[in-house]
């Protein structure tokens, strides 16, 4: 089965007075139908930029400098802006993010705001019915349509935003830290909802987060990002059980988990994206760094099954 979204060597650069920040550096990613792809990384790893890049929402001084994004085999980076907007954005690929629970205008009712999305994208059918259907889909009472955003809790607003994202039946939902601003119980419920939507609607999800524990509960496939590059990718279960890349290994050690009695830090800092080291981007923090790691950048290579690691150890 061919993937519905496939990113090849995507590079997004930001031009700053200090130099060119390579926020996303030759990233490749594949998303299949009914699959949750997790993108994990610390702040500054470029994971949110990647999401915005897929939505083609990179604003100057940032620019998509290279790469292809295939949606059902069509390179959507070659579409004109208006073509992308009318055919892909929100219709095929929708996005929710951390701040989207504050993404509603306070002066209009939730229902009106969802209807507006339907109207803008020329939805054919009964708006009121569709809103009801959408709210039911995200497990909200249909009466929420007649309420104002401030009358809803954070979790309800995020649900309503998910309803808005699903308004036009997209195939792909990009979730960028969608639960970070929510409390733990609400977060768990939203994750449950996303799992249900994946199953019921056949939705494909790109789930971006810094929370490795949370990601383990939802992702089928995992991409570990560090300083703009993919360090390791593969089946989620395998990576959590047996991380290969030294960064992934250290990250697993650093995860705080109720069932663990320790957490370990990773000494050192993430390199400046405008001034990446010449070799591997993790080389100056890596406990296994060898001579070659500082000279030459390792390519992401397949080591077994669908596992790819960018490390000279393999």
């Amino acid at each position: 089965m061919s993937p519905i979204l496939s990113i090849e060597n995507l590079s997004i650069h930001f031009y700053t007075p200090k130099g060119v920040r390579k926020a996303v550096d030759r990233v490749s990613l594949e998303l299949n139908k009914k699959e949750v792809v997790g993108v994990a990384g610390e702040s500054g790893s470029g994971k949110s930029t990647l999401a915005l890049g897929i939505m083609r929402l990179i604003a100057p001084p940032g620019e998509i400098v290279d790469g292809k994004i295939f949606y059902h085999g069509d390179d959507i980076l070659r579409y004109s802006e208006s073509e992308f907007n009318s055919k892909i954005r929100w219709k095929k690929i929708a996005m929710i993010f951390q701040g989207s629970l504050n993404g509603f205008t306070p002066v209009f009712k939730i229902g009106e705001q969802i209807e507006e999305v339907l109207e803008v994208h020329e939805y054919k059918g009964d708006f009121k019915e569709r809103v009801k259907e959408l709210l039911k889909m995200v497990e909200l009472d249909p009466s929420v349509a007649d309420r104002y955003p401030h009358e809803l809790s954070g979790g309800m607003k995020q649900r309503a935003f998910i309803a808005m994202a699903l308004a036009l039946n997209p195939e792909i939902l990009i979730c960028d830290e969608p639960t970070t601003a929510l409390d733990v119980i609400t977060q768990a419920k939203i994750i449950n909802l996303l799992k249900t939507l994946k199953k019921d609607l056949g939705l494909s999800i790109i789930f971006i987060t810094h929370d490795m524990a949370l990601l383990s509960e939802i992702s089928d496939k995992l991409y570990i990002m560090y300083a703009g590059g993919i360090m390791e990718s593969g089946n989620s279960l395998d990576i959590y059980k047996n991380p290969k890349h030294p960064y992934t290994q250290l990250l697993m050690e650093a995860i705080a988990d109720i069932n663990k009695d320790y957490i370990k830090g990773i000494p050192g800092f993430m390199p400046d994206l405008a001034n990446l080291p010449s070799g591997c981007r993790f080389s100056d923090r890596c406990p296994y760094a060898m001579d070659i790691c500082r000279r030459k950048e390792p390519e992401l290579k397949k080591i077994e099954g669908d596992r790819n690691v960018a490390c000279w150890l393999y």
Binding site: N192, Y240, I258
Partner: peptide
């Protein structure tokens, strides 16, 4: 509920709907 809902490293639960008994918080 808090402990139940708290994310834990458990990749094997990726398709499992977590059971949470308490209701979601209201705004007011």
């Amino acid at each position: 509920a808090l402990i139940q809902a708290y994310p834990k490293i458990s990749p094997e639960t990726k398709d499992v709907i977590k059971r949470i008994d308490v209701k979601e918080a209201e705004a007011a």
